[in-house]
Design a protein around this nucleic acid. Structure first.
Lengths: 156, 156
DNA sequence: AAGATTATTTCGAATTTCGCAAAAAATGGA
DNA sequence: TCCATTTTTTGCGAAATTCGAAATAATCTT
């Protein structure tokens, strides 16, 4: 039962802005030694609190078509469907939900054609999908992992 | 009109796995010099193809409740609503969509209580929201920015 | 093919990261 | 409160990485 303290959160906030800022620079900003930053980050990584990543711009990669698709699945096959979908590289997000749809996924495509093909050929091949409700993204306003707040929290 | 070539894509693929891997290591893996990796990355950053970031685990930060909320907005107020929602730190994703809902958002909360409060107090205060259709996330199967494929693409 | 432009390599210097031991701080009984 | 134990931080020198800039190579244009 370890807690994230203020220093941990500050480190995460700084890294959210630039995931490759030197530890020495973080240390300077927070007024502690580089070693402290290093050991904190090592621990946060070990605890799985975060990972170093990159955030690509899908449009710049040619993935100009994004969609959120709500799926209805056959009872008992939901997990299978979710796992199959997770394997697809076009699919960026897969979750099981309460509400109108059993599964909701988010996926990126090069074109509308590719989206249609995905729905007609890929989804139809997965056993257990009863219905797919496609919402086409017209404009993106926000898409961020910047979810580190300042309140303290206990790790499970 | 610049293209992402195979080297660019390989760099992105490597960085997707570990956003803090040394340039020398990438260079070694790809069989080019460190300087090339450096200049490629500098250009990719300048072109906005990607950013260095971290991917926090919401649950580890105490954000155990996630939801996708489909919103119906009053005609003409959609953009305003989207911008207001984007300001909220609990909100991670905001997009305008074709389909059943005008806007779809994704948000993280510490508790169900916080979610309810968000819907009842935060959303109701934003002018132009006609209806909110909340789907509570029961299980997350995939959530990734790993969307770099291998095909070449022209930058706009 | 020559010249101009752009990209890559090379390499020494500056900076950062790493490993580790000592110091300091925090924790926990008695 | 005092002392023992554990955890965290600090302070280095060594190793590795990044940076800047010039030299080389590749590409493009005419």
């Amino acid at each position: 039962m370890r807690k994230l303290d203020h220093v941990d959160r500050q480190i995460l906030q700084i890294l959210q802005v630039d995931g490759r800022i030197p530890y020495t620079e973080i240390a300077h900003q927070l007024g502690v030694s580089e070693g402290t930053i290093r050991s904190r980050i090592t621990r946060l990584l070990q605890d799985g609190v975060f990972q170093f990543a990159i955030q690509p711009d899908p449009a710049k990669l040619g993935l100009k078509v994004q969609a959120i698709i709500g799926l209805t699945t056959k009872l008992g096959l939901q997990q299978n469907v979710a796992e199959e979908l997770s394997k697809l590289s076009a699919v960026r997000f897969v979750g099981a939900f309460s509400g109108k749809h059993d599964l909701i996924i988010q996926a990126c495509f090069h074109s509308n054609d590719e989206l249609i093909t995905f729905v007609n050929e890929r989804l139809s091949q997965i056993e257990g999908i009863v219905a797919a409700d496609v919402s086409l993204e017209l404009k993106q306003y926000k898409d961020s992992f910047s979810i580190v707040h300042d309140d303290e929290v206990t790790l499970q």
